[in-house]
Design a protein around this nucleic acid. Structure first.
Lengths: 279, 279
DNA sequence: ATGAAAATCCTCATAATAAGAGATTTTTTT
DNA sequence: AAAAAAATCTCTTATTATGAGGATTTTCAT
């Protein structure tokens, strides 16, 4: 029997375990509401005061929250530490910066390295030259898997069975992004992108053009994408094709280095550098 | 009645709730063991397979873990996103970079901005000039509250009652760091630092000297510290004093800006920019 | 330093739910 | 397309999370 509701809503969300609730609390600490008091949480979550204190204590002990003056709590230092852990373990952050430096003058705009994580894509590294390009696309900025050239070029290079799953489960989002109304349309659209090797798009910031190519951890396994960004008005079709070729060339080099890369700490049977799976 | 064991062990650790266990799993994903499989977790934690899958699902749904090829899991993108949230909300990251740029030439070494979070201090921003200084002190690098000039200058400026608590609960660590064998010694040591206004130390990397001054969010409320770093061999006592004065001057400017700062998004009654409490 | 106000934690009975074993479904590889 | 591996589900039992209110600690102003 097929579960319809989770598929329809895009992601299962039946979570009602205490762990889910505790982790959910962290989501409340968004940039526009960075401080929460116990009273606010009690009211917002309709839970007993003691329970909230228990939750908060667990989060504080783990360093995910920090108490601040005036009975409030904010996001804690552990996130900063974990981000550093991830940075230290990520071979792309060793390999890509020199490549970006080489491309900088030719691109004359900006460059993004976008990582692929399950169903999400996010900026992992940024290199900006043109001060006219005001992007808040720095590390940590999330993208939908279906919007923007960095995401879509990754999407296009996912294994077939993952694309099939997406076509089934994310039908609405795919159609909304203009990637096809059904599986065959979607598959053909993705195939076309793969054939070109790079993707030119201008769907996130209309004033900009992004030209992206895929980075592979292993043959057939996308790990990330490199996106070259320019002001739209300064890009002719020939420029776009040229930058596309440039991106592909750079990404081939990056992929080769990535596949040669073996971390010194590699655990016995552990994958050298792991690729995200969808779902 | 006084709880002795938590005080002795430095921090309470009686956690045996499911939330604690789940959060504890994340600690396993350290830089040298970044990939964990379900089997490894089952064995390591002596828990049922179904339970591990339940835990992992909660963490994956929250974006704290990501499945990778080969039945493994790694730290997820949510940490990168949360770090960005914190960066975006942190006024210090707006205020300090230009100040560091001004100081750069004079310091001729490196500069650290260290934030204060509960019982921890960590690097939040780094500015390096001298290539001979090889520090891995970039954002996210944690410090003990008792080691290093950035930490200790913050420590010295904590409110008296917090110092008293520390003297009670962290007695061993304080003695080990040479900050005094008892409350009066500790208090006097801290007072001496406050009187100087800055702190010169060389206790983390013996080849370097750090000269730190405190940054206040409100009069009497430390929020962070600025640390000027130089190779030890190139620092005379006069240099140290000069850099100390420079640090204090810079921190006064930073503190003034910080106290004037009111985030545009400030929620109704929420503190403008929150200061960490100890504990 | 002292005391009042606020914030946090503890105790305990009850009801909710997390754990585990094994079958089942989904995903991935060949 | 089939086989292997991974992840999820089902169900019962025993664990443990919950909430109310009181005890305690922390904070802040005098």
């Amino acid at each position: 029997m097929v579960q319809l509701s989770p598929a329809e809503s895009g992601r299962a969300a039946q979570g009602d375990t205490s762990v889910t609730r505790v982790l959910g609390i962290l989501d409340l600490f968004a940039p526009d509401t960075p401080v929460w008091t116990v009273d606010m949480l009690v009211e917002h979550l309709s839970l007993g005061r003691a329970t909230i204190y228990r939750y908060i204590r667990a989060l504080c002990d783990a360093g995910f929250l920090v108490p601040v003056a005036g009975a409030g709590y904010v996001l804690g230092p552990r996130f900063i530490e974990f981000d550093r852990s991830i940075r230290l373990a990520d071979p792309l952050l060793h390999i890509v910066p020199p490549v970006m430096a080489e491309l900088r003058a030719v691109v004359n705009g900006a460059q993004l390295l976008c990582g692929f994580y399950g169903l999400r894509v996010l900026t992992v590294l940024q290199d900006k030259t043109d001060p006219n390009i005001t992007m808040s696309m720095e590390r940590g900025r999330p993208f939908s898997l279906f919007q923007g050239s960095p995401s879509r070029v990754i999407l296009a290079h996912l294994p077939t069975y993952q694309l099939r799953n997406l076509a089934l489960n994310q039908q609405k989002e795919i159609a909304a992004a203009g990637l096809g109304e059904n599986w065959t349309e979607f598959r053909d659209a993705m195939r076309a992108i793969r054939k070109t090797g790079y993707l030119v798009a201008s769907d996130i910031d209309k004033a900009l053009v992004g030209i992206s190519a895929p980075i592979f951890h292993a043959p057939g396994a996308v790990a990330a994408s490199l996106c070259l960004v320019r002001l739209k008005e300064s890009v002719t079709p020939e420029d776009a094709a040229f930058l596309g070729g440039l991106a592909v060339w750079a990404c081939q080099r990056i992929s080769a280095e990535l596949q040669a890369f073996r971390p010194g700490n590699a655990g016995a049977g552990a994958p050298a550098f792991p690729i995200s799976r969808v779902r």
